Amino acid sequence: MKKESNHYSHIKALYLEDDKLIRTIVCEHLEGNLSELLIAENGNEGLSLFKSHNPNLIITDLNMPVMSGIEFIKKIRLLDQTIPIIVTSALTDVDSFIKSIELKVDKYILKPFSPDEILGAIDVLSRQVILSQLNATSFHLEDISEEQLTTLQVVLRNSFSAIVKEIIGKGAPRINIKIKNNFLELYLYENFLPYEYSLSTTVYDVSFINSLRKSVYENFKQKIERKLSYSTGLNINLEDIQVSMNNSVEKFIFSIKNSEK
């Protein structure tokens, strides 16, 4: 069941639900928002659809005939450790909840629920799906979709801002990102500290402050690479740092590619 989506065009979901009424209501709500929605009534059907259609997100009930949701999730995790899974269930016993958590379920929605709750969960996991798609393919920045590019930029901007704040003690008010081939250029603006401006107008010249700031970043090179690689799932290497206090800008050049499998 395939429709063009204006909301989550990158989401190909597999939905498992044995209750016909609930299944119909949820499907009617989801089909117009997703790229594709695969439907199963039990774990056996779901497993078969997973293997033949490669969805990138799963929504499943736990209490189903033939194969329960817990057994289904166990089999899925043997095949794919990272695919986001949303559980919808009326079960309130602690044992089932704990088992689903142990199987790395990403979201748990208790019945009765509104279809909007599922869309809300999909929205939260949407970025995770996009980053997984980037990491699962041969990576060329110029070939990724606009949606993937936007998500990558947001993740990089947020992650890098947090890293800089941790290193310098101040997060840049403005960060711009430029992409050229498989290189990223990140620009920080107006991120110098008051004492640095003070030093530049007294004993030390601006070139000294530039060199000092650059050396601080270079000392944290591995940490910067590690955190950005972790947040994106890609292999990111810091190639060059350029600091200009006169222009109040710091430029970072990264190479980026798929992580090693």
Rank of each mutant, 00 (worst) to 15 (best):
M1A: 10
K2H: 12
K2N: 15
H7A: 13
I11T: 00
K12Y: 11
Y15W: 05
E17K: 00
D18N: 08
D18K: 00
K20A: 07
K20F: 11
L21R: 00
L21Y: 06
R23C: 12
V26G: 02
C27E: 08
L30S: 06
E31P: 01
G32C: 05
N33T: 07
L34T: 06
S35Q: 03
E36Y: 03
L37N: 10
I39E: 13
G43R: 02
S52Y: 00
N54M: 03
P55S: 08
T60D: 15
T60V: 09
M64Y: 09
M67T: 05
S68D: 15
S68L: 08
I70G: 05
R77I: 14
L78R: 14
L78D: 15
L78P: 09
L79D: 11
L79H: 07
I83D: 08
P84Y: 13
V87E: 04
T88L: 08
T88C: 13
T88N: 08
S89T: 14
A90M: 09
A90C: 10
L91C: 08
T92D: 10
T92C: 03
D93G: 01
D93M: 06
V105A: 13
D106C: 08
I109H: 01
K111P: 09
K111M: 05
S114H: 07
S114N: 08
D116M: 09
I118M: 03
L119G: 03
D123H: 02
S126Q: 00
N135I: 01
A136I: 01
F139M: 04
H140P: 03
S145C: 06
E147Q: 12
E147S: 12
T151K: 04
L152D: 11
L152R: 08
L152A: 10
L152I: 03
S159T: 12
S161C: 03
S161Y: 05
A162M: 02
I163L: 03
K165I: 00
K170W: 00
G171L: 01
R174E: 14
N181L: 09
F183A: 15
F183N: 15
E185C: 10
E185F: 07
E185G: 15
Y187W: 08
L188M: 06
Y189R: 10
Y189Q: 14
N191F: 14
F192K: 07
L193R: 06
L193P: 04
Y197P: 05
S200R: 01
V203M: 15
I209L: 15
S215R: 12
Y217L: 12
Y217Q: 07
E218D: 12
E218T: 05
K223Y: 15
R226W: 13
S229P: 04
G233Q: 02
N235D: 07
L238T: 05
I241Q: 12
Q242W: 10
Q242V: 11
S244D: 14
S244Y: 01
N246L: 07
E250Q: 10
K251D: 14
K251C: 11
F252I: 02
F252C: 10
I253M: 14
F254H: 11
I256S: 06
S259N: 09
E260T: 10
